[in-house]
Simulated scan of single mutants.
Amino acid sequence: MTPLPSPQQLRYLVALADLGHFGRAAVACAVTQSTLSAGIIALERQLDAAILERGPAKRPVFTPLGLELVGRARAALAALSAVAETASAARDPLTGPLRLGIIPTIGPFLLPRLMPALRRAFPRLRLWLREDLTARLAEDLQGGRLDLLLLALPAALPDLETLRIAEDPFLAALPQQHRLLQQARIPLSAMGGERMLLLEDGHCLRDQALSACGLPGAGVDGAFAATSLHTLVQMVAGGLGVTLLPRLAVAGGVLAGTSVVLRPVEAPPGQVTGRSLGLAWRARSPRAAEFRSLAPVISEAVAACLMQDRHDKMVT
């Protein structure tokens, strides 16, 4: 009978794949580099299989079999983590640590109101936050490094369960004196005829804005993509073009100190004029009931943000 790998060996394998460096992987696993290297070698001997290519390359190069084993190691570690999570959830739900991933077009604008609300509702919950793009957060969730995501939907999230919790409408953001400001409500089709300023590739808001305006991503000039909503607003204020902003970001103060003017948008029936906010967790997670119980608190925090006084540049 083939000896089974230990959880620690699997952690070494996954850390090496994620970080691509023996030293950094060893630090992440809180062991010496020689200990990690010996663990990988021992795993190869146990399985009688080559996981890494042996050659002059300084960075670890995985064999095709090694790459497959990394995927299976991730799944095995997630399953082991679920065992402990099941016991913890049954013993005392919504207490202890919860690792939440949140995207940068939500986090800065919602967290100042959400964090106090969560502390009041669940005083024994210890929330750890990670802000990143959707794709990387989804990888961390599937790899067991995060427990829950707060993001914008729709998004490509295979093997994850999602729950929509709020709607976040888009607003047209234009520089002063722009010709479209003559209209009280701006058709999304008219926005599509302007130079659209967008976030960099990888931000889900970029794809959602393109979809709302009926624009193909390949047809948009990517030379003027912004790294954040604050940068995007400054580009609009400078007269470089127009954009769509989520109402949540406007309520959170993204326009502060700028001359950007907002207008509501309109579209034909059935066309998207905003984004949905939602939660995502691993399918069949033993903590799914806990995550669903968080949804009303987060939804109320979003609603409270959106009900704040409208920005003085907003025209309805």
Rank of each mutant, 00 (worst) to 15 (best):
L244P: 02
T273G: 12
T134Y: 00
S285V: 11
S88P: 00
D207T: 13
A155Y: 02
E44G: 10
L43D: 01
T316Y: 11
E167T: 14
A283H: 14
T63K: 00
V233W: 08
L248P: 03
L111W: 15
P169R: 05
T32I: 00
L151M: 13
R247A: 15
R124K: 14
L199M: 10
F122L: 13
P5I: 03
R113C: 01
R119L: 03
E290K: 10
A152T: 15
V260C: 06
M314S: 07
A218Q: 12
L52F: 04
L198R: 11
P187L: 04
G222H: 11
G192C: 06
L174H: 09
L248A: 07
F22R: 09
S285H: 11
L65W: 10
G66P: 10
R126Q: 13
P60N: 04
P3C: 00
P268Q: 06
G241F: 03
A156E: 13
D207Y: 05
L174F: 10
S299T: 07
M235V: 02
L240H: 14
P60V: 05
T258Y: 06
Q177S: 07
R119E: 13
D132G: 15
G253I: 06
I165R: 04
R120C: 03
A121M: 01
P7S: 06
F22C: 01
Q176F: 03
A251N: 01
S211H: 07
A121V: 02
R24H: 12
S211G: 00
